[in-house]
């Protein structure tokens, strides 16, 4: 058995530090939630849902180019108005699934980030037929 070297001590220290940092980093991690859980959460959460297409989608750039609101239905079927302080993303209506990151502020869910899953135009199992035939 060889003696313990300084380098081992430093290595051990780094491992401990890494564990500590990762534990504290896990606070940064958001968690998936429903709107019902988001109501009570004081931290930002991610809500997975679908766009409620029957509800109003509001984007009037002439009035405010940084305000877009829409309704999302979560996995429990609860619908909430979501506000995004940015331009309306392209192909938004086409989204199959939406992940919004943010917090409830009064009645609305204010999203800091939005991720859409779209049926890609380039992946679908369809064969386009030549238009000139």
């Amino acid at each position: 058995m060889r003696g313990i070297k300084k380098i081992h001590i430093i290595g051990l220290f780094m491992v401990v530090l890494a564990v500590v940092l990762l534990l504290s980093a896990s606070k940064d991690m958001s968690s998936y939630a429903t709107f019902a859980q988001a109501d009570t959460s004081s931290r930002p959460v991610k809500v997975v849902g679908v766009l409620a297409k029957d509800k109003e989608m509001y984007y009037e750039p002439a009035k405010d180019p940084n305000y877009f609101s829409f309704y999302v239905r979560d996995s429990d079927g609860i619908e909430r108005k979501v506000i995004l302080h940015d331009a309306k993303p392209q192909d938004f209506e086409m989204s199959e699934q939406i992940v919004v990151t943010g917090q409830m502020e009064q009645e609305h869910f204010v999203a800091s980030d939005l991720l859409m899953k779209c049926p890609s135009k380039y992946k679908d199992e369809e064969i386009s037929v030549r238009s000139d035939i």
Partner: peptide
């Protein structure tokens, strides 16, 4: 399950 950080840039930068 954990989701990626709500603000990834500040998480990594930190």
């Amino acid at each position: 399950h954990k989701a990626s950080p709500a603000d990834p840039i500040s998480h990594y930068n930190k």
